[in-house]
């Protein structure tokens, strides 16, 4: 059960770490002046009254970046066990890793050639 003991530490840490910022924010909530008025609590956009909705439709480009990142993220996650075991693997394993990375580099080159990686 040693493993769980380590994670109990992480669990306590998880509970405790939000308390760190909550304490000063809470203290500030007690100490600070609370004189909000309508003008103060307006959205700050350089003194100009805000026009239209903030939550509007964004460009699809962000989504493409997110998607390419997701693919790479999954790839890296699969490479971690390979890297951990690498010190005791043979040449076949190196070739397997190489092929794995090459297949994904293909996709990167495709994205590159299609020009979706250029920020417009």
């Amino acid at each position: 059960m040693d493993v769980l003991n380590e994670w109990a530490f992480i669990g306590v840490f998880l509970v405790l770490s939000p308390i760190l910022p909550i304490l000063p924010i809470g203290a500030a909530w007690l100490l600070r002046p609370k004189r909000a008025n309508v003008l103060k609590s307006q959205t700050y956009e350089c003194g100009v009254e805000t026009v239209g909705d903030t939550w509007v439709q964004f460009r699809v480009q962000y989504y493409i970046y997110g998607l390419i990142f997701l693919v790479f993220d999954v790839e890296m996650v699969l490479l971690f066990p390979w890297a951990v075991a690498y010190h005791k693997l043979d040449f076949f394993a190196f070739a397997a890793g190489l092929l794995f990375i090459f297949l994904l580099t293909d996709a990167l080159i495709y994205a590159w050639r299609k020009g979706v990686l250029v920020w417009r």
Binding site: A28, W29, R32, P33, S41
Partner: peptide
Amino acid sequence: LIKEDITPA
């Protein structure tokens, strides 16, 4: 700590 803290409406 004693700064006013405004949450936009």
